[in-house]
Design a protein around this nucleic acid. Structure first.
Lengths: 254, 254
DNA sequence: AATGACCGTTCCTTATATGGAACGTTGTTT
DNA sequence: AAACAACGTTCCATATAAGGAACGGTCATT
């Protein structure tokens, strides 16, 4: 299903592959290693990398190529395409109800959630959300919340492709059927729960940010330790999360 | 001085140009507009954009192409290439001396500073630093601090290319000569000052984070309003900024 | 010292990605 | 209603980027 269309602009595709490969490397990589990993001729990789260095996207040092700061422009532009992130920060700065919890903002990309921002609490959580980080949507609170508000067809298409036999923890929702049953609960209460499905002992409550058409554009969630997440607390905090998501939805423009 | 080397992998270069162009647009752009702006044939731009959509880097909607969240991977990887950002956050969370000020972390890229992180204060500053944001190094506090610690040749090369006739404010350092005189002061006191050179009424104090070889890898700065920046306060806070930068330098690895 | 493995880089042929021109649509102007 | 302009898309000859092979250099191993 990958290259059925006739290959156009292979250099552009390889540019992406090279940047992706460098993203998952902790050290600079040489031409040969990159070429091997992305399955392309050395000389082609060499030409592209030199072009990217000239463009200021990559740095070259003695031991190979590495990412440059140029790509921060692109992500900054992406995060600023709407007022979502700035409104998220503003509302958390003003509304003190979630002050002692870690709060995240994320959006859905296929079967993953992408974290757009994170306001850490002073209390340690044992888990760090980073901007740009991706997690399986089906196990995360915001992912569950957003998946609950897309059309049944879309959700079915996404869930059908999930590899259910690679759970994150013993608590991870086990299959499509259980997820569909949960969806009814999340919709009814207006927020979704991840009870240790991403990380053992971490509980997250997520709510969707819906556009005027009722479709999710993003989601917010709060994270806490299992010890903090007593049921009555969950209900109270879940309601707050849902309310804040609704306020964000109203302020959200374009 | 741009395309003296023989053009290799034009599609890779155009990929960068397209992403850059979309970064500076508030709305999606069509093939024709992009092609006009980056001075490339429509059909080539079309091929590259379709490839980038297939790669998940761009989104396509009715009114044109726009950036996708894929590029967040690259910037997240860039920010995590060292422990700099995480140590910056940790030290600010523990050390309360700068709690009521906006503190930024940035690095030098040619003649610009690139902001890597920002810890906003509760007090409004009237200026927002965003990750990935770029400012002229010569006018910014961290830029001044870092430029003070590179070799004289390197600094001379960078400063010679600065367009001094496009100052940000009336306070912006006016020329190469004045900057060189300031460098001696910044080096002597261990921190640099931007007194309204980026924005009228905003004062920033910056210090370099030096590697074991004594070369700057990044810089930190605190920002405050002119009213807050009385001289004795500047001296006190400048010393704190310098000390924190030194602690960061010690913790900084790889 | 000699061998071998692997590196980054260059070369040159050829397969092919490119891009000018043409196409069908759409929306605006005359 | 007709003419026009600008759009996204397709087409095809050809300029040219790609990539297999060869090169010189470095480092381990024998």
């Amino acid at each position: 299903m990958s290259t059925q269309v006739k290959r156009r602009a292979p250099a552009a595709q390889r540019t992406v592959l090279i940047l992706d490969r460098l993203s998952t490397s902790s050290k600079p990589l040489g031409v040969s290693e990159i070429a091997r990993d992305i399955d392309a001729p050395k000389s082609s990789v060499y030409g592209i990398c030199e072009t990217l260095v000239a463009a200021g996207v990559l740095h070259f040092e003695a031991d190979g190529y590495s990412l440059g700061s140029h790509c921060l422009r692109w992500s900054a532009a992406y995060l600023n395409r709407s007022s979502l992130v700035s409104e998220f920060r503003r509302i958390l700065a003003v509304d003190g109800r979630l002050a002692s919890y870690t709060v995240t903002l994320s959006e859905l990309d296929k079967d993953q959630v992408v974290y757009l921002d994170c306001r850490n609490s002073d209390k340690p959580l044992g888990f760090t959300f980073q901007v740009g980080m991706r997690l399986p949507a089906v196990y995360s609170a915001t992912g569950k919340a957003m998946l609950s508000y897309i059309s049944d067809e879309e959700r079915h298409e996404i869930l059908s492709a999930v590899l259910w036999d690679a759970p994150f923890t013993a608590n991870s929702v086990p299959n499509h059927k259980k997820f569909d049953a949960d969806v009814k609960v999340w919709r009814a209460q207006g927020y979704a729960v991840d009870n240790g499905e991403i990380r053992e002992g971490m509980v997250c409550l997520g709510a969707p940010i819906l556009n005027p058409q009722g479709l999710p554009v993003a989601g917010i969630a709060i994270s806490m330790t299992g010890a903090e997440a007593r049921l009555e607390i969950q209900k109270e905090l879940g309601t707050i999360v849902r309310d804040i998501a609704n306020v964000l939805a109203q302020r959200y423009t374009s």
